[in-house]
Amino acid sequence: MLGLLLRCRQCQIPARDAFLQIRAFSTTQSSLGKHDKKSTIRIPSKKAAAAKARRKAAVIAAEDAKAEKLTLSDAISVLRAVEVASPNNTYELYIKTEIKSGVAVPKGRVNLPREAKPKSEDKILVFAEGRQAEEAKKAGAHIVGGTELIDGIVNGRVQATTILCTPALIKAITPKLGRVLGPLGLMPSERRGTVTDDIAGYLQRIQGTSEWRADRAGNIRTPIALLHFPTKDVIQNIRHFLASVKKVTGNTRDGADSRRVKSSGPRPVTTISKVMLSSTQGPGIRISDF
């Protein structure tokens, strides 16, 4: 009871009421000072960004140099010893390519000296009209037509593993099919030789070959040989496949590439950063001599 009778000396009101009074906070906005120079976000110059990228690449290269690698023949011997009880198992080759922005995924064809698996049949589609369409049908193309095939390809009703086109129709199909076929590595292009007037000649050249293709991250995987193959046959298959990949990625050039460079400018090079050989139950081994 005595506590209830106590009064605040300054305002002469009961202490309990004084305690319950809520002080109103000021809503006046505080003035914000200008940012000092130390708090300003600094955007690195192009020269500084390039220097940082070089330092990062040097660190990655140093770490890669420390990674354990074997020669191709030694890797084959190790995997053969690991799978000595499974002579029918398969060697698998893995190739990592560094795809740059705006560059199509690597894709090519190869005819291995000694096949490790039965070849899968290609389904070939050709954009051609008139006499060239008739020649394509006689040469063995599965689907032949003009711009009427575009909607079927976009909707997924018409599918093929290889698509060719004559120069007369390439401008008509590119606007609608570029974004659909480009990421899949199926868009016809002059650089790959799939835009040509000699459809029959191209189909004759690819007979007996099998197609390889990287995924969107630039990884290429393929069965390359069987464990019971002699070492020389395994090495020959791997070298043959690597030669095809190097040619497509611009790491090696032939006479046709040189003539193309003179006419259409330099061809972009896609770096091959890693090659590994593994087996069905064995480990993946980095190859040093690729």
Rank of each mutant, 00 (worst) to 15 (best):
N111D: 13
C8M: 06
K69G: 06
Q236D: 13
P113Q: 00
S288W: 00
R213H: 13
I163H: 04
P188Q: 11
C8R: 04
K52E: 12
I163Y: 04
P118S: 13
L227P: 09
V158K: 07
L186F: 11
D74T: 09
K138A: 02
V269R: 14
C165A: 14
K56S: 13
P167F: 02
D151A: 01
I238M: 02
L125P: 01
V180N: 01
K176N: 03
L203A: 14
V275H: 08
Y94G: 06
R239K: 08
E98P: 12
I153D: 05
F127L: 12
R191F: 09
A53P: 08
V245L: 04
R267I: 14
D64T: 07
D215T: 07
P118R: 09
W212Q: 09
T209S: 03
I163A: 05
E190Q: 07
V180S: 04
S288Q: 03
G208L: 04
N237E: 13
M1Y: 08
E121P: 02
L4M: 09
S258A: 09
R55V: 15
L181R: 01
L93R: 07
P283L: 14
R23T: 14
S86E: 10
A61N: 10
E134K: 00
S86F: 02
D17V: 05
N219G: 01
E211M: 01
Q29V: 13
V195L: 07
N88G: 10
A81N: 03
G250I: 15
I60Q: 13
Q281L: 12
H142S: 10
